[in-house]
Computed example of a mutant assay.
Amino acid sequence: MADRRRLVAEARATIARGSKSFRTASRLFDRETRERAWLLYAWCRACDDLADGQTLGHDARAGVDGAAAIALMRARTAAVLAGEEVGDMPFDALGLVARECSIPHAFIQDHLQGFALDAEGWRPRTEHDLLTYCYHVAGAVGCMMAVLMGVDANDTDTLDRASDLGIAFQLANIARDVGADHAAGRCYLPVSWLDEHGLCEDGLMEPASRAELAILAARLDALAAVYEDSARVGARRLPFRSRWAVLSAAGIYGAIAREVARRGPAAWDERVRIGKPDKLRHMIAAWREAGRPAAAAVVARTGLWTRRVRADPVLPPSASADEHPPKRPTAPSISPDAAHGGSRS
């Protein structure tokens, strides 16, 4: 089997270059959880780079064959989950951490589906579609991270709240990156939202559109806050070090969404960043919150988007074209099966 120490070292180097915010939060975990988080991150980063033709999230290449990229990541993922080594660090890292923590393969499938949606140029039509997409690209990762932190795979409510945190993170990312996504030919704002405000995707970044666009950014911020609040309930159930790390990340990403909303029409003049002093402030606040006694009452998730709990089939090496939602021109809503796992992979 692949040498664990080598995989961990390479995964650590990947996160050091690929994500300052996640690297900062990961330092708060105990050593075992921290290393496992690095291993999982390396796979997520590799899949994202394959899908977008990037290197550690930068220097995107034009003309990427999305279908081929998805097929490759599915095949390598299936191989390592079957116990094979593929000689590709991020995928071998996933195989290792999946074995160590018994990560349900359904979460891995769900995350891969997010890359498939992007590769097909899919667009959300409704808020439900938006939240479904956020689950695939980030909420499923939240579920995997919860398992790494010791959450039982049958603890549905805590896993749902872990998914909520990923959804909150992704809503913050979408708000921050509207301009960058537009430049790359993408838009994650629901068609129904754009229609309500008289906006069209092509002219989204025009000066005349900025005031209405700022209203939508504030809407994303408010939506992210609801899911963040739910996630904080789940964080109370984690060991102290994990609770501290999760609450720190929640504070940092929440600050991104709030800052985008605060800047209004100027939010996309330059990329919103949370500096080191502010990150430290959020980490101190999270440490204090993590040390408080857990509340006895469970706050219901009434009205929140919820993943469908399903069986955990073996991940196949590829998926046929009819297992994915239609492409961009029709801007379809995701069907219930496609949204929650159905027959898509």
Score class of each variant (00 low, 15 high):
Ser192Glu: 13
Leu247Ser: 09
Trp268Ala: 09
Ala162Cys: 07
Ile274Gln: 08
Val272Arg: 05
Tyr188Glu: 01
Arg186Trp: 02
Ala214Phe: 10
Leu247Phe: 01
Ala183Pro: 03
Pro277Ile: 01
Met149Pro: 00
Arg271Leu: 10
Asp229Glu: 15
Trp268Thr: 08
Lys279Ser: 00
Val260Ala: 00
Asn173Trp: 00
Asp155Tyr: 11
Glu212Ser: 14
Ala250His: 04
Ala153His: 06
Glu228Leu: 13
Ala222Asn: 08
Cys187Tyr: 07
Pro277Lys: 01
Gly234Thr: 11
Pro239Met: 12
Val137Gln: 03
Leu280Gly: 13
Val246His: 02
Ala266Gln: 14
Asp177Trp: 13
Thr158Ile: 12
Asp269Arg: 14
Ala225Pro: 00
Glu259Gly: 06
Met144Pro: 07
Gln170Trp: 00
Ile256Trp: 12
Ile252Glu: 04
Arg161Phe: 11
Ala153Asp: 05
Glu201Ser: 02
Val226Gly: 02
Ala217Phe: 03
Arg273Pro: 05
Gly254Ala: 12
Ile274Met: 09
Gly251Leu: 02
Phe240Lys: 04
Gln170Ile: 00
Leu220Tyr: 07
Ala211Phe: 09
Gly198Cys: 11
Asp229Phe: 08
Gly251Asp: 09
Asn173Phe: 00
Asn154Pro: 03
Thr156Asn: 11
Gly185Phe: 10
Leu189Ser: 01
Ala218Glu: 12
Gly179Asp: 11
Asp152Glu: 13
Gly203Thr: 07
Gly264Tyr: 10
Ile174Gly: 11
Leu223His: 06
Ala231Pro: 06
Lys276Cys: 01
Ala140Asn: 12
Val246Pro: 00
Leu216Ile: 08
Asp181Asn: 09
Glu259Arg: 12
Leu199Pro: 08
Val226Tyr: 03
Gln170Phe: 01
Asp195Thr: 08
Ala168Asp: 12
Cys200Val: 12
Phe169Val: 15
Arg232Gln: 12
Val260Met: 01
His197Leu: 15
Leu216His: 08
Asp155Met: 07
Asp155Ser: 10
Tyr188Phe: 13
Ala267Gly: 04
Val246Asp: 07
Ala218Gly: 15
Ala235Ile: 07
Leu204Val: 01
Ile252Pro: 04
Leu159Thr: 07
Thr156Arg: 15
Gly150Tyr: 04
Ile174His: 04
Gly166Val: 07
Asp229Lys: 13
Glu228Ser: 14
Ser163Met: 09
Arg186Ser: 02
